[in-house]
């Protein structure tokens, strides 16, 4: 769909996902065979429940990318609970640095969001960790999620959010599914305000990456080779930056072939003097 955002959620636990599934009116997708997968009615938002740990998070991310046909302008979100030594139980943090435990591997998610949310680094560990002397948030998926997404997307289209669930004064053993869902739902407005920004980035990328719709109509009328299609897409981009998209078809309708469409558009553009006052 034109200008549609594409958002993909990767969440470890059902109880973490529940408030988001409800808020976005998501329903189970038939595509969820290896992992539970949900989607909203328009197909803008897809969500997968990965289970705990790096391997499952990476596998689920790849699975969702394939099963949801995630386009290149998809933005990806990982949200979940995390331990934190500063013990701000219930606080939502935007993650801007991820370190993989017992390695030199560090990743930096994009920070182009406008938000007042507090920020923190994240340490992704292999086994649950009760030692909170660490200055970072602690989870078991973040780094693997980043690494998997970064294979097919950029760091600006990637968002990691963590809600503090345990720490020196909040015993992890006291966490229940109900409490976890509450931790997420308690932050839902802040989460969604960042999602709106991510949707805008995704829409911007859609506009940048997808040729104007008129290209499709032109290709239906004349037959273009692959290299001509590429030329056409560039010419149409140039043309639509100067004139109204809907005027293009009548401009070229008398052309006999794809070749003459291309040479006509090239000629018009190569001779055009941009009116900078209008642009």
């Amino acid at each position: 769909m034109i200008g549609a955002p594409a958002i993909r959620w990767v969440i470890a636990l059902k109880s973490e996902a529940k408030p988001i599934i409800e808020k976005l009116d998501m329903v189970p997708s038939k595509k969820g065979i290896d992992f539970p997968v949900y989607r909203d009615k328009k197909g803008y938002h897809w969500l997968i429940i990965s289970g705990i740990g790096r391997a499952r998070s990476a596998a689920a991310t790849n699975y969702l990318q394939q099963e949801s046909d995630a386009p290149p302008w998809s933005a990806w979100i990982n949200i979940g609970i995390a331990g934190y030594g500063y013990d701000s139980y219930g606080a939502l943090y935007l993650v801007d640095k991820i370190t993989l435990e017992k390695s030199n591997l560090v990743a930096y998610p994009g920070v182009a969001f406008s938000t007042n949310l507090p920020r923190a680094g994240l340490l992704t560990v292999n086994k649950p960790k009760m030692d909170y002397s660490e200055p970072n948030l602690i989870d078991m998926e973040g780094y693997a999620f980043y690494e998997a997404v970064n294979k097919f997307s950029c760091r600006e289209l990637l968002l990691l959010l963590k809600v503090v669930s345990d720490g020196p004064k909040s015993n992890v053993k006291e966490l229940t599914s109900g409490k976890i869902s509450k931790l997420i739902s308690g932050n839902i407005e802040n989460i969604l305000s960042l999602v709106v920004q991510l949707e805008d980035f995704s829409k911007l990328e859609f506009k940048r990456l997808v040729p104007p719709d008129i290209c499709r109509q032109i290709k239906e009328k004349w037959h273009f080779t692959v290299s001509q299609e590429h030329q056409l897409s560039i010419l149409v981009r140039r043309w639509t930056s100067l004139f109204k998209e809907n005027a293009l078809f009548s401009e070229i309708k008398n052309q006999k072939s794809s070749k003459s469409v291309i040479s006509y558009l090239s000629k018009v553009l190569d001779e055009y003097e941009v009116d900078w006052g209008q642009s």
Binding site: Y108, G110, A112, E205
Partner: peptide
């Protein structure tokens, strides 16, 4: 945010110049 070398961040391949430019 402390980093080791600026290149690890600045020269990364999967970055979006246009979105970054907004902030």
């Amino acid at each position: 945010i402390p980093i080791k070398r600026f290149g690890e961040l600045f020269n990364q391949r999967k970055q979006n110049f246009r979105i970054q430019k907004s902030k």
